[in-house]
Amino acid sequence: MFDNLWKKTLAATLGLSLCASLTVAQEKYGFGTKADPAEIAKYDIDIHIDGKGLPAGSGNPALGAEIFEIQCAICHGEQLQGVRAMGANSLHEGRRDIKKLPYATSLFDFIRRAMPLTDPGTLSNDETYGLVAYLLTQTGVLKDKDVVLDAKSLAAIKMPNRGNFIIDPASRFSAKDVH
């Protein structure tokens, strides 16, 4: 199957290079299929820092606590302390400290894209909002233990550590390009 691709490709490339040598510039190769919005929506799971991509639904810390107990505590620990034997660091301090995230959208995005480790993609939108609410209250970022997070309120959260990120000048970007 895949090995036949070489042959097809060779034929196509030969044809193409002949064209290219005859015409000065190849306008468009034209390969690929136009993606319609419904098709894009199937893949488009990321959350932008302005909240674009956050789905409908909502959740509070109580719902998050329930899900955390069932799905997360085995690796992350009941007190978010991390279980080293499972390869999970503390979510309270160090590299994975949730308080230090620059954007709450990063947290929603990561839980939705990759967690739980052995069954990613199985949490509902409400459960994911609930987990973000639970983690942000447990780490002291949000004070209101009854907070309800949805697309609007999550996007509005100002994470306290945002100003402590220094942009590597070698990246050729400055603060305005990244926030």
């Binding site: 820092i49 620059p102 959208t105 990063s106 990561f110 990759a114 990244v178 926030h179």
Partner: peptide, 9 residues
């Protein structure tokens, strides 16, 4: 804008 994904932050 960048996404500030888990792995980059």
């Amino acid at each position: 804008k960048p996404w500030w994904t888990h792995h980059e932050v």
